[in-house]
């Protein structure tokens, strides 16, 4: 056997195994979706769907509405994004030249390090430090609350936004910088009048991905949001997210409607995060088309 055929054969083998790996992961996602739909089926009988998509979770009274949890998830995640996004832009502006250049690298390194801290560590430290602090700040309310969970989640998703926005700004870097310097713009003007508008799509993509990360997190809200299955009426109220709901109910008898409700929770969660991902793809491909 000569070298050429051997190489060709090895290449074919490699291609085959890569294809197999790609197919396997694609199949896994599809199977998860199919599995969730299958297990949620009993709930999509007439009558049952109204029961699940109702506003009251009172299993002892036979009410299994998961809308309060959906509201809790969306509220906690968007509040976290609202806190983290301006902070992240600030960090990016600092690194991009508003702060002393000597500090830029250490700050970025710290942000990189933040990505490696497990969520359970954030949550556990917050139970001990942040919960009592907020409780005394709000006269007994706000301990295990939406606000607490959102604050910690904002720290969790901050690196996602910083790294994405920083990458986008660095890509624009030299050309924009030269032009701005030639026009006599200050660094502040350069960042907020030129970089931000030019990179608006990347900003939206970063925000969507961060929102997805916040929606999908379980540990932070499970340990900090208080898990009350109620409609949140204030950010000092406690709330339960869909993810925490799944974690809590997973433990009950597998025959009960409560158990079935976690499959529809999972389905809703998957649909929400999938549509966020699709939104990102759509924005990116739209940007690609425009550039061409």
């Amino acid at each position: 056997m000569n070298g050429a055929t051997r190489r060709a054969r090895r290449e074919r083998w490699l291609e085959g195994s890569l294809l197999l790996a790609a197919l396997a992961s694609a199949c896994a996602v599809l199977l998860i979706l199919a599995f969730l739909v299958y297990f949620s089926l009993p709930l999509f009988r007439p009558g049952a769907i109204a029961g699940i998509l109702s506003g009251r979770w009172q299993p002892v009274g036979g009410e299994f509405g998961i809308l309060p949890m959906l509201a809790g998830s969306l509220l906690i995640a968007s509040l976290a994004l609202a806190i983290a996004f301006p902070l992240a832009l600030g960090v990016c502006a600092f690194v991009q030249g508003l702060g002393p250049p000597a500090l830029a690298r250490p700050v970025l390194a710290a942000v990189h390090f933040m990505t490696s801290i497990p969520t359970i560590v954030y949550s556990f430290v917050s139970v001990i430090l942040l919960v009592p602090a907020l409780r005394s700040a709000f006269a007994g309310r706000g301990g295990f609350s939406i606000l607490t969970a959102s604050l910690v989640l904002s720290v969790l998703i901050l690196p996602t936004i910083v790294l994405l926005v920083h990458a986008s700004w660095s890509g624009l870097g030299p050309s924009v910088r030269m032009t701005c310097a030639a026009l006599g713009l200050s660094r502040t003007q350069e960042i907020f009048r030129v970089l931000v508008p030019v990179s608006s799509r990347s900003l939206v993509v970063a925000a969507i991905l961060a929102l997805g990360r916040a929606l999908g997190d379980t540990m932070v809200s499970l340990l900090l949001a208080g898990n009350s299955p109620q409609w949140p009426s204030s950010i000092l109220d406690s709330a339960r997210t869909l993810t925490a709901h799944i974690a809590m109910v997973l433990a009950v008898d597998s025959q009960s409607p409560a158990y079935l409700s976690i499959f529809s929770s999972g389905l809703i969660l998957l649909l929400v995060t999938a549509s966020l991902t699709l939104a990102v793809r759509w924005i990116q491909s739209a940007a690609g088309r425009r550039r061409r």
Binding site: S228, P229, Q230, D237
Partner: peptide
């Protein structure tokens, strides 16, 4: 049981 009850595991 009040819905505002915080739930611990």
């Amino acid at each position: 049981v009040a819905a505002s009850t915080k739930v611990v595991p």
